[in-house]
Design a protein around this nucleic acid. Structure first.
Length: 759
DNA sequence: CTACCAGTCCTTTTT
DNA sequence: GGACTGGTAG
């Protein structure tokens, strides 16, 4: 069985799977079969008895990838795989913290905050500290904290280079104190706390170092320095670390990922073997050529050239549309013809740079009766009604959770206003306790409404203590008044549906599946008797330790926040796939549409100001292109609605970086008349010629560069009328002008495209 | 206290 | 176009 799988591998793949002499770095290009290599390697370790399943730790980038990997391995081996640690950095660290919560100095029922929770937590902090949120933006504080944590730094470890900086450091400290008090933990904290746990507890660290002989990391180019340190702590001299990555697919620098970890790893882990996987099994020639040529524009790559045996296939089709609606129409027309040819809809993907772009496509798809599925974006667990319901559950599980408290103390409305909350917050501050507990410090008659609320929670706590998870959720929804509230709301039907779904999710959440480990728990500080057993701690088995530490409700809540809510429309659902390019990483589709290829959108204008930002955008484009197996479509528009206003853009520079011979420029068909709404005359510049093929790039540029367009000058636009220039930025092709028109509208226009005249 | 309105900023990308 | 804030009337 194993033999026959290995036979199908190419030479470098085989090397990677079979290598047994220390740590390995695998440079795996897109579509070169890296998932196969990873799973086959794990399968081999287990099947040949080289490694005990429980000595394997595999880190993936998403929960989805983790599930997929586990599935593939279990199809290869008959062993019990529950001892294998597979998951994202976050889920693995979470697991570790749950098991060793005492040593990590966390309450047993600590709760995870998502980004929204974290932001409101910061806002609350600023308020209690009397910091003006106009001067110090909560978002910036959040960013500062997260950046620091991603680098593994506590507030005390950050250099205070300026007064301004010091303020952030102080806020970071205060924030951590607040979280500790409330028993909440943000994403970065999961990792940092876990790292510190390992740093401070020698027995524990040794235990894990002894336990894990094989550490495998997928998407290594996307690890940040904190994650790197975590891996270092878990490995000792005998550990074989198998890191797979592709520097060309590093697209998470904005979140602290550091490609240099690859070179660092090679050096620090004394890697004797570096394997390059360069044969691509996924894409046709034109697609691969385009990707290769594009990425050559990036400096400082580790260097790698993908090649393929397969035929060159159809050239990449490129379409220019008048606006975003037309773009969607074109895409849907193409999809329609595929569906007629019986292409499975799930093999068709629409990829875009930012979530906001999905709306037009969703609308168009549903109008045409095509089933689709959107990944990411607003997720199930992000919906307001779900968050409200979860807040009740969280408060039930941990009444110190002030975030949850504030969210629902007056929802549904129960006559508790800002005034009441403010006095409550003061009482909480004086007595240094949670808001919930502070209710008891308030005089009876002022806190009537609050005590009523408390009553609801306390009754619920008693009534639900013996209920199953779905029943518990169901009763909470009823007693909280949420059901009643949404029933009376005009548009509440959908919300009620979603709440029902939450109960279903609770029923489907089988907690027992999550119990999969035997590890010593709470060694050292925190549990007094444990000192005696910490000596021979290594292989003591504490069955179901995790289960004891975590109630089903708490497990459900953690899962809801960590798992990005892939709850709807599961497996086998035949639907067109919509997602951001980031979300598409690691996936592949037969037909791929990359839309919105315009300067400012992709590459995104914000990225241009960041160091290395453009290179990262280009890698993002590279990732997008290499998702396609058979057909690739590129699309851009002349104007697009953004923030409710039309905005002109030039086509993306990435289009210029793809060789002409791989492209086939197409026109949009008879629908082009629409254009006359926007431009009077001079249509010839806008449309690709009748034959449908045009290669005249940049033809619009040379004659329009004009110094007369300056701030304050009055201009006229054929569609929008007269206006005054507020702003000019960029030069030549990139020149954009901000105009306030007489009707009050303010728009950014690309000078190369908009038909502006001096008035 | 609630309900509603107007004004402001904004969006990259995610565990 | 939407989320969020602040102000005002009932």
């Amino acid at each position: 069985m194993l033999e026959s799988i290995i036979k199908t591998l190419n030479e470098p793949q085989k090397e990677a799977v079979l290598y047994d002499d220390g740590s390995v770095l695998v440079l795996a290009g897109a579509g070169s079969g890296k998932t196969r290599v990873l799973t086959t390697r794990i399968g081999r370790l287990i099947l040949t008895g080289t490694a005990n399943p429980r000595s394997i730790l595999a880190v993936t980038f998403t929960n989805k990838a983790a599930k997929e990997m586990l599935l593939r391995i279990s199809s290869m081996v008959s062993h019990d795989l529950r001892g294998v640690w597979i998951g994202t950095f976050h889920s693995l660290c979470h697991r570790m913290l749950r098991m060793h919560y005492k040593d990590a100095n966390l309450p047993q029922n600590f709760q995870i905050m998502d980004m929204q929770d974290q932001l409101s937590s910061v806002k609350r902090l600023l308020k209690t500290l009397n910091v003006d949120p106009e001067i110090i933006l909560p978002k910036d504080v959040q960013r500062f904290i997260n950046n620091a944590k991603e680098q593994g730094l506590r507030y005390s470890e950050i250099e205070d280079v300026s007064d301004f900086n010091r303020q952030f450091i102080e806020l970071y400290e205060a924030y951590d104190i607040q979280c500790q008090k409330e028993g909440t933990v943000d994403f970065g904290e999961l990792l940092l706390r876990s790292l510190e746990l390992l740093q401070r507890h020698d027995e524990l660290r040794k235990h894990y170092q002894n336990r894990f002989d094989h550490i495998l990391i997928d998407e290594f180019q996307d690890t940040n320095s904190l994650q790197y340190k975590w891996i270092c702590l878990l490995s000792d001299l005998d550990t074989s670390v198998f890191a797979v990555g592709d520097d060309d697919q590093s697209i998470y620098a904005f979140r602290g990922a550091d490609v240099s970890n690859m070179a660092k790893f090679e050096h620090e882990f004394k890697v004797k073997k570096t394997v390059r996987l360069e044969q691509n099994y996924r894409s046709h020639g034109h697609i691969l050529d385009a990707a290769n040529e594009l990425i050559k524009n990036n400096p400082s790559r580790l260097g790698k050239n993908l090649w393929t045996d397969s035929e060159s296939g159809d050239p990449i089709r490129v379409c220019e549309s008048v606006d975003d609606n037309n773009e969607a129409t074109w895409v849907i027309e193409e999809i329609h013809s595929f569906l007629k040819e019986n292409v499975s809809p799930s093999e068709i993907a629409i990829l875009y740079r930012s979530n906001a772009q999905s709306r037009v496509f969703e609308h168009c798809l549903s109008q045409n009766g095509i089933k689709y599925r959107v990944y990411g974006g607003f997720r199930f667990y992000d919906r307001a009604e779900i968050k409200n319901a979860l807040a009740y559950l969280r408060l039930l599980d941990n009444s110190d959770d002030d975030n949850a408290f504030l969210r629902i103390v007056n929802f549904p409305p129960r006559k508790i206003g800002t005034k009441t909350i403010e006095t409550l917050q003061e009482l909480a501050k004086i007595n240094s306790c949670s808001l919930y507990k502070a209710i008891n410090f308030m005089e009876e008659k002022r806190s009537k409404a609050l005590r009523l609320f408390m009553g609801i929670i306390e009754d619920l706590r008693i009534e639900t203590c013996n209920l199953s998870l779905p029943n518990l959720i169901d009763l909470s929804l009823k007693n909280s008044g949420l059901i009643e509230h949404y029933s009376s709301e005009r548009e509440g039907v959908d919300r009620l549906e979603n709440l029902k779904e939450l109960v279903t999710a609770g029923a489907g959440f089988s907690f027992s599946e999550k119990i999969e480990d035997n590890v010593p728990s709470n060694v050292g500080i925190g549990s007094d008797q444990s000192t005696s057993r910490s000596q021979d701690v290594t292989d003591i088995i504490f069955a179901d330790e995790l289960k004891e530490n975590l109630s089903p409700l708490a497990a459900f809540l953690s899962n809801a926040i960590l798992d990005s809510g892939e709850s709807q429309a599961e497996v086998g659902e035949e639907a067109v796939q919509l997602m951001t390019i980031h979300a598409a990483k690691g996936l592949e589709f037969e037909r791929v549409f990359i839309v919105g290829l315009e300067e400012g959108l992709f590459p995104h204008e914000n990225s241009l100001n960041e160091f290395g930002g453009l290179d990262e955008e280009r890698r993002l484009m590279y990732v997008a292109i290499t998702r396609a197996k058979k057909n690739l479509f590129l699309s851009y528009t002349q104007m697009r609605k953004l923030y409710g206003q039309y905005r002109y853009n030039r086509k993306s520079r990435f289009l210029e970086e793809i060789p002409e011979e791989n492209l086939h420029w197409v026109s949009q068909g008879p629908k082009q008349k629409v254009s006359q709404n926007y431009h009077s005359g001079r249509e010839e510049n806008f449309f690709i010629s009748e034959g449908g093929i045009s290669s005249k790039r940049g033809e619009l540029s040379s004659n329009i560069v004009d110094k007369r367009f300056r701030v304050g000058v009055e201009v006229r636009h054929p569609k929008f009328g007269e206006g005054i220039i507020l702003n000019v930025e960029g030069i030549e092709q990139d020149c954009r002008i901000e105009v306030r028109f007489t009707n009050g509208d303010i728009k950014w226009l690309a000078l190369a495209i908009a038909k502006l005249e001096i008035n």
